[in-house]
Amino acid sequence: MSEVAAVIDDLRDESAEVDLLVGELSAEQWAAPTPAPGWSIAHQIAHLTWTDEVALLAATDADAFAAETAKAMKAPDSFVDRGAEEIADALAPAALLTRWRDGRHRLERVLREAPAGTRIPWYGPPMGVASMATARIMETWAHGQDIADALGATRTPTARLRHVARIGVRARDYACLVHGIEAPGEEFRVELEAPDGGAVAFGPEDAAQRVTGPLVDFCLLVTRRAHRDDLAVRASGPDADRWLDIAQAFAGPPGPGRAPRTDPA
């Protein structure tokens, strides 16, 4: 199996796990609030639906995607939320679930059939097929976490979290940019404890500044699904420490993040 196919398999499996969370919910549960202010479970699935459909458009019709990008740039702080809200408001839960399933399955097929070397336009630089699938894994996992939190459900961490961590590490300098901070001039070493007891590592082994902790905690941090104070992620070095306060694995403004659950005192 190729590396690209393996990443697409992980995207399929991550989506299926979230599907298990919502597939049997009542209408009342679909309307339940999630930790994202103003977003119900329906809004979370509508957002995944919207982004899957936009990714599909980017992969199949570059001109149409460019036109959508131009519209988005007129309202850069609201177009993503508006896309989710329009879908959530227009569809009953059963129809929304069907549309999400259809869109993600069509995107999976297109990604699998893409010729080697394909570059897909996006809101930032164009992405390869594996990078697009990885980005979709990150978003699916993060919004799935919002849904799990709303339902009081506990998810078992999987090896797929390595994709989320990789994006979080690679987005270090972007996180600095959106916060108006000069990016460090050197790489960090990031060593994370995987769910199976192994390790996931990024950066040079001899780096002066380091980040360590559980893989799942790092993923919660870089997707801003939990406050740093509630996670066992640790930094060694002032720049690494500052990064953990601003880290994000997604494009766009950082948002307020989650409030700490623990009492600092």
Rank of each mutant, 00 (worst) to 15 (best):
L11R: 00
L57F: 04
T34M: 02
T60F: 03
E68P: 12
L107E: 01
V110H: 05
W39P: 09
A46C: 06
E28F: 10
R109T: 14
R12M: 15
D63H: 04
P33G: 05
V110A: 15
P76E: 08
W30K: 14
H105R: 12
E24C: 05
P35N: 00
E53D: 09
D19S: 12
D77F: 13
R12A: 15
V22M: 04
I41W: 01
S78A: 13
Q29M: 01
A90T: 10
R106G: 08
H47G: 03
R12P: 14
R106S: 07
A32S: 12
A64Q: 10
E68W: 13
E28P: 09
W100V: 13
R109A: 06
A94S: 07
A58I: 02
D63F: 07
L25F: 02
P33L: 02
A36E: 14
E17K: 11
D63M: 03
A58C: 08
T51I: 05
R82M: 12
V22H: 00
D19T: 11
A88S: 05
R12H: 14
A46T: 04
E108S: 11
L97D: 11
I45L: 13
W39L: 01
G83Y: 01
L97E: 03
A46S: 04
D61T: 02
V80F: 01
F65D: 00
R109K: 06
L96D: 05
G103I: 04
D61L: 05
T49S: 07
A42Q: 14
E14W: 03
D102N: 09
A90L: 10
A32M: 06
A95K: 15
T60H: 04
A66I: 06
R82I: 14
E85P: 12
A70Q: 06
T98C: 14
R101Y: 06
A75D: 09
I87L: 09
L97M: 00
L96Y: 09
V110E: 02
F79R: 12
D61F: 02
L107K: 03
A31H: 09
L11E: 01
H43I: 00
F79L: 13
D13W: 11
G38I: 04
V22R: 02
E85L: 09
T98G: 15
K74G: 11
W50N: 10
D63E: 07
W39V: 04
S78Y: 14
A64M: 08
L11I: 14
R112H: 10
A32V: 05
D89L: 03
P93I: 02
E85N: 15
A42E: 04
D89R: 13
A55Q: 00
L107M: 11
A46Y: 05
D19N: 12
